[in-house]
């Protein structure tokens, strides 16, 4: 993961999604739900993350949250102020293998990321159009007028993201409660 962050080579969006998929594969190897992401600033990867919900027993530890936490800590160690962080994050682009859920989409909106590229849709939990549309400006309340949502593009290497889910669910989620319903994924 650190290699990926430190290399910082400018790449195009397909290549960034490839890095997100690599992150997701790492999660799969750790018996986690395989979702991965990278955060890109000026065409350089500055943070990455993958799902850690089973390991932490904290179901909010999605890939996006992992990457954001790493980035915020790094920037504060570098001495950035609140307004400096806000400014830099507004130039950042997220590449994530699956549409952000309602929680993560809200978080990305609060932070003010510029754009999000995702792989497959998240029909059951998606917060960028599937269930709610938290990325859309029209959904931000009137008293927060002027707060832009983020641009969202789906379908980038979606089939690869889906095939990782298939591998995961064929194995069975070792941490799901038993007995549980068959898991249907997008």
């Amino acid at each position: 993961m650190m290699d990926l962050v430190e290399s910082g080579v400018p790449l195009d969006s397909d290549a960034f999604m490839e890095l997100a998929i690599q992150e997701a594969k790492g999660a799969l190897d750790r018996l986690e739900v395989p979702v991965g992401c990278v955060i890109v600033e000026n065409k350089k990867v500055i943070a990455s993350g993958s799902n850690r919900t089973n390991e932490t027993r904290n179901a909010t530890r999605h890939a996006e949250m992992e990457a954001i936490d790493g980035l915020l800590q790094q920037w504060q160690r570098d001495g950035l102020s609140e307004s400096e962080v806000a400014k830099r994050i507004s130039e950042c682009v997220l590449y994530v293998t699956c549409e952000p859920c309602i929680m993560c989409a809200s978080a990305l909106s609060y932070l003010g990321l510029k754009e999000v590229y995702y792989g497959c849709r998240n029909e059951k939990f998606g917060g960028c159009g599937s269930v709610l549309s938290l990325h859309a400006t029209s959904c931000t309340p009137s008293n927060n007028a002027g707060i832009a949502g983020f641009k969202c593009f789906g379908g980038l290497r979606a089939s690869e993201a889906v095939s990782l889910f298939q591998i995961f669910y064929e194995r069975g989620n070792p941490n799901a409660p038993r007995p549980h319903r068959a898991v249907v994924h997008p």
Binding site: L72, Q76, E82, S83, A86, A107, Y110, T140, N144, I147
Partner: peptide
């Protein structure tokens, strides 16, 4: 006020991290 963090001065001391989420 989840969008307001960027206009606030959050860090009370240098030993603490702040985190809008």
């Amino acid at each position: 006020n989840p969008w307001q963090w960027s206009h606030q001065h959050l860090s009370s001391s240098s030993s603490c991290f702040w985190h809008p989420l």
